[in-house]
Design a binder for these strands. Structure first.
Lengths: 226, 226
DNA sequence: GCAAAAGTGTTCCTTTTACACCCATGC
DNA sequence: GCATGGGTGTAAAAGGAACACTTTTGC
């Protein structure tokens, strides 16, 4: 009656962001066949007693040492031929990490783990490119109506940083001044005393995402839109 | 290595619509424990050689005789305790059918299959209420930016019908005149010669969704929005 | 003619877009 | 002072919401 011949895995597209680097994706190099030596997105089999999210977090920890700051289920891929070995259905997630967490280590199932710029992706194993495309599409649309962009930034960030982040994700220019006004009008940012010194030009304020305020406003019917 | 103790099922929320009845959901009465005699959404185990979508369509056919007009993956539910028997992960879909296809039959795994108004739902088995809530949320949002509402209507329909459909799905009144203008401005409806006779008042034109035109416009960057 | 529903037009207001200009800092 | 990037304001255009009015049908 059950389905003894179908295995279940989870995989995770993890996005990272650095102001100077742009968006990156976390990949691991496969140690074993099939696709030995090829880059793939981290993931693995789900254990019987753990939740799907726990499985994702465990695999990420084991294979890359990364802890995500945000995790969301993406889509389940179940094409009977997606894995040459046997029938393996995977539930894909995507995650976001703060730039500070960029340290990696190589471990268990991965000969290596590494960040790749979106513009310099290697050929991926299995149907992982398809999963990545799907994740990017989701990120692009979701960042416009849910406050998840902050999860890619430091707790404190400047207007310029979040503005640039949105430009990178959308892949197009956004008017700096209109972006600022739209964002501030949402009233979910707390302006800090501290200014961003160091660079050229006038220093800008640091801001922090005020999640409590956001949740309260959301409950009242406010909608986040960028 | 594999996951012999996790079983995989698919389940489907199927929505139907009748102008006079509003939105309905297709449910089946469980023949066997657990939850014997309780209403549940149709679904069942995935076979090794079939795709997930094929599994959904097969189970729907077997349990209810219904063929959906639209099918979309919703979300995967994998809480370790969602099924009291063992670890069963389900990939949930939602589907839409035209009102004409409303005929049902009782079959294999179901003592009975029946349409339920959204306002008169029985208590559901497993976590199926949660899945239904999720499906409704998805339907409500998606109908606003993808032309899937038509899948619930006859191939030809009047403005009044689609207007009422949106009111039912959104659960609130929409100005008849503004709705009409907004919809027509999209230029994806083909107005037919035929008028809706019979009722009281001035007859309205029938329309048909012009999918080719929609796809062409979409490619050019047009966005469907209601 | 009257009621009912379809179809058309107009006005007002909010939001978006495209800018110009001033301010604070490093050198 | 000058270059550089941050911060504020404003005007035109577009889009959405509210609503009055006309048309076509059944009785």
């Amino acid at each position: 009656m059950a389905t003894p011949n179908i295995s279940l895995t989870v995989d995770a597209i993890v996005f990272g962001y650095e102001p100077k680097e742009g968006l990156s994706v976390l990949l691991v190099k496969r140690k074993y066949p099939p696709f030995k030596g090829r880059w793939a997105i981290p993931g693995g089999f789900v254990k019987e007693k753990e939740s799907l999210e726990q499985a994702v977090e465990r695999e990420l920890e084991e294979e890359t040492g990364v802890k995500v700051n945000y995790l969301e289920q993406l889509y389940s891929f179940g094409n009977p031929k997606r894995d040459p070995r046997s029938r393996i259905v995977t539930i894909a997630y995507y995650g976001l990490v703060r730039s500070a967490n960029f340290e990696l280590f190589a471990a268990t199932d991965a000969e290596d783990a590494q960040w790749f710029h979106l513009s310099e992706l290697p050929k991926l194993a299995f149907d992982h490119q398809k999963i990545l495309d799907y994740a990017l599409e989701r990120l692009r649309s979701k960042v416009g109506y849910q406050p998840i962009g902050f999860k890619l930034l430091d707790k404190k960030f400047t207007m310029e940083e979040i503005h640039h982040l949105y430009e990178v994700i959308y892949g197009r220019k956004l008017d700096r001044r209109n972006f600022r006004k739209k964002f501030l009008k949402l009233e979910i940012l707390e302006e800090l005393e501290e200014k961003s010194g160091g660079g050229r030009g006038r220093p800008g304020s640091y801001y922090r995402f005020d999640e409590k305020k956001y949740l309260a406003l959301e409950k009242k019917g406010m909608t986040f839109e960028v």
